[in-house]
Computed example of a mutant assay.
Amino acid sequence: MALTSLRNTSRSNPPRLHMGCAKRACKHRKTRETGPPDSCRRMTPAMDAERRLAQNVPANSSPVHERQGMAQNWRDAELPLFAEAKRINDPERALRELAKEASACTRCPLYKNATQTVFGEGPADAALMLVGEQPGDQEDVTGRPFVGPAGKVLDRALESAGIERSAVYITNAVKHFKNEPRGKRRIHKKPDTSEIDACRWWLDNELAIVQPSVVVALGATAARSVMHKVVTINANRGRLIELPDHRRAVITVHPSYLLRLLEDRDKRREFDRLVKDLRFAADAARPS
């Protein structure tokens, strides 16, 4: 029986995340600026008063009280704040706004050789999220994740595992196609650490909005983005890994790995293992 309903029925309050303009680098990333960052500039009394007024901080509050207030704000039951300074408490609409902002992303140089941003797709309340590496050539042209050769392998694996693709949220760790033009062809290149980290900002916000119970990391790049560190697939495969915010992760291979195998026997074996991992993740995502 196909698993057609993987809705998350126990959604917790999402964290309060600030989603600034997609064209600007995140404040946590180093950027090339004409002057030193604000954190390195000397704070004069006038500047501090202006900051407190803008942030609605009491004049007699201490740094400790400010940090406590920031921690409390982080726990507020609100969806992310978008560039136009409004909160959206409808997850589906929040995803649409997030995708709209991602379409203009220039947080790393990958947008220069890509046709468009390829954002995630699927139910905003999906209990199961699949995270791949990056879009391929066909995904870059169509603007949808996993529609190329690797996507066909994934579709077959999902069907064999009894999972409807429309019931899961599918995205990538990196939203632009990294490639090297060679004549009329575009050769796939693996994203580096800085590109993965730059694009993690989008994935973290997708996770905050969708709030899946289980996240399946397809391949090493996805695993690094989901886990925030380098992990080996074989050492962590076939088990549930605890994540923050009461989520769990399952690590498996990327479907494109099967396409690179030469022997049919190896292809069948690895396909069966992929199906097993997907079924395991779907079972864990089911409401108890």
Rank of each mutant, 00 (worst) to 15 (best):
T4A: 11
T9P: 04
R11I: 06
P15S: 02
H18S: 11
M19E: 00
A22N: 03
A25C: 11
K27V: 00
H28P: 01
R29N: 07
T31K: 00
E33I: 13
G35W: 02
P36S: 11
P36I: 05
P36M: 08
S39E: 11
R42L: 10
M43K: 07
D48Q: 15
R51Q: 05
R51S: 12
R51C: 07
P58G: 09
A59Q: 14
E66S: 06
R67N: 08
R67W: 08
Q72R: 14
R75N: 13
E78C: 14
E84N: 14
A85Q: 09
K86P: 05
I88V: 13
N89A: 13
D90W: 01
P91N: 05
E92Y: 09
R93M: 11
A94S: 15
A94V: 14
R96P: 10
A99T: 14
K100Y: 12
K100E: 11
E101D: 12
R107P: 05
C108F: 01
P109C: 02
N113P: 07
A114F: 00
A114L: 03
G120A: 04
E121N: 12
A126Q: 03
A127D: 01
A127N: 04
M129A: 05
L130T: 06
L130F: 11
L130M: 07
L130Y: 09
V131E: 00
V131A: 01
E133C: 12
Q134C: 09
E139C: 09
V141M: 09
R144I: 07
P145Y: 02
V147A: 06
G151P: 14
V153W: 01
L154D: 02
D155M: 07
L158Y: 06
L158T: 08
I163F: 00
S166K: 12
A167S: 14
A167V: 06
V168E: 00
V168L: 03
V168I: 10
Y169Q: 05
T171D: 00
K178W: 05
N179L: 06
P181T: 07
G183F: 09
R186D: 09
H188A: 06
P191I: 00
D192R: 02
D192W: 01
T193D: 15
T193F: 08
C199L: 01
W201M: 05
W202F: 14
L207N: 03
I209M: 03
V210G: 03
V210E: 01
P212E: 02
S213N: 15
A217Q: 01
A222W: 06
A223R: 03
R224L: 06
R224K: 15
H228F: 14
K229P: 05
K229V: 04
I233T: 15
I233E: 04
A235M: 13
A235P: 10
I241G: 06
H246F: 15
R248W: 15
A249D: 06
V253D: 01
H254E: 05
P255D: 02
S256K: 08
Y257D: 10
L262H: 13
D264M: 10
R265N: 12
K267I: 14
D272P: 10
L278D: 05
A282N: 10
D283V: 15
A285Y: 11
R286I: 13
P287I: 07
P287S: 13
P287E: 06
P287W: 04
P287G: 12
S288G: 15
